Amino acid sequence: MRFFSLSVFVVITLVAADFTDASIVIGDFEVSGNQTVSFAGRTQSQLDLIASGSVPEPDGIQKVIQDIANFGKTSPDAISITGFDTLSITATGTWANTANLSSNGMGPSGNSGDNKTTKAGYRIFGISGMSARLNTLIGVFLSDDIPDPNGLPEMLSVNDGDDMTTPLLNQTFAIGADLSNIIVPENATRLFLGHHDGQQFKNNSGLVTATITGTSVNTLNAVPEPSTILIWLVLGMVGYTSMRFRSFFSV
């Protein structure tokens, strides 16, 4: 029975290993210095309609209108994160808040001590905005719904020490070069990444590459390899045969 018990223990251990948290590389994503998360989840016509109807005009609205006119460059890409509970993001590359990348280029952690707050004109589309280092990589989670301009979340601030790993839907958070264990908010299906600047993204330059890893709790790590299945079967058969053999001679 001792050998049988050991076999069962080994089989259970192997099976349990495939039911642990599954950490999966979602992919590598290029993020341009022109892309702003303020435009996340909206079409160009939707942005135009809101911007043209803003009365009184919020601070920076003329820069917003120029960026909307360059929607092909300034709109961020949607990244599907459905099924993931936490994310970790690392980023490398060089970008700048000007057209002169060679002189003003910075990494995704941004300029040390040079903080910028998103202008009010960029916060009329339902995305919170951000107070963080200029040139920082930032992100925002959205559901399948269009962001509600009347339900603007609180703006997070790096200077105030706000926790960037627990953002709400439509709440911009700072990522920088490395941010781990970001809790995906309930109902989030999409992640958008962008460059942090106070205003005017159309003249920015450079890009960074973000690598995103996701973890989903209590999911299968992977379909077991045929060789693994064979090991389970052999161990089970050996254990069962050993038990029957000992039972026969103990009669």
Rank of each mutant, 00 (worst) to 15 (best):
S112W: 11
G139V: 04
L152M: 13
A188S: 06
I127D: 01
S7D: 03
D178R: 11
T94Y: 05
M164P: 02
L137P: 02
S157N: 04
A51D: 04
L142M: 08
S205C: 08
S250D: 09
T117C: 05
S5C: 11
I89L: 07
N115T: 10
G206Y: 03
A174G: 02
G151C: 11
N204C: 06
P167T: 10
S227C: 04
Q62E: 15
S112I: 15
F192S: 03
F249N: 01
G41L: 03
F71A: 12
A91P: 06
L137Q: 04
A99M: 09
F125D: 07
S45E: 15
F4P: 00
G33V: 02
P226T: 06
L235S: 06
Q35F: 06
T166G: 01
G60S: 09
L169N: 02
T36R: 08
N150W: 07
N70M: 12
T36P: 01
T228F: 14
I229Y: 06
N111T: 11
D163I: 12
L233S: 13
L101S: 07
P185F: 11
N159R: 10
I182E: 00
L230K: 09
M243R: 10
I127Y: 02
N104T: 10
G139A: 11
M164L: 08
E154K: 14
V234G: 09
V217N: 11
P58L: 10
G27A: 11
Y240V: 15
Q171A: 06
D18L: 15
W232E: 00
P147F: 03
N218Y: 12
F29P: 07
K202Q: 15
L87E: 00
V8C: 12
I12V: 15
F249C: 00
T82Q: 14
G107M: 05
I50C: 08
T13M: 12
P167I: 02
G129N: 00
P108T: 08
G113S: 05
G113V: 04
R244H: 06
L14N: 09
Y122D: 03
S32D: 10
N70C: 08
D18R: 15
S45G: 03
S23Y: 09
F9P: 01
W95V: 00
S242L: 13
F245G: 02
G198E: 11
P224Y: 06
I231N: 02
Q46R: 12
L156F: 01
T189F: 02
L179V: 11
K119P: 00
P226K: 05
L191T: 06
T166W: 03
T211I: 09
S112D: 14
S227W: 13
F19G: 08
V238F: 13
P153S: 08
I50V: 15
T20C: 12
H195I: 04
G53M: 03
A174T: 01
P58V: 09
Q200Y: 14
D48F: 11
L193V: 07
L152T: 11
N150F: 13
S80C: 09
A120N: 13
F19P: 01
P76N: 07
G176C: 04
S7V: 07
T90C: 04
Q199W: 13
A40M: 08
R244K: 14
S54P: 08
G33R: 08
P167W: 01
M155L: 12
M155A: 01
I231L: 13
F71I: 05
R190Y: 11
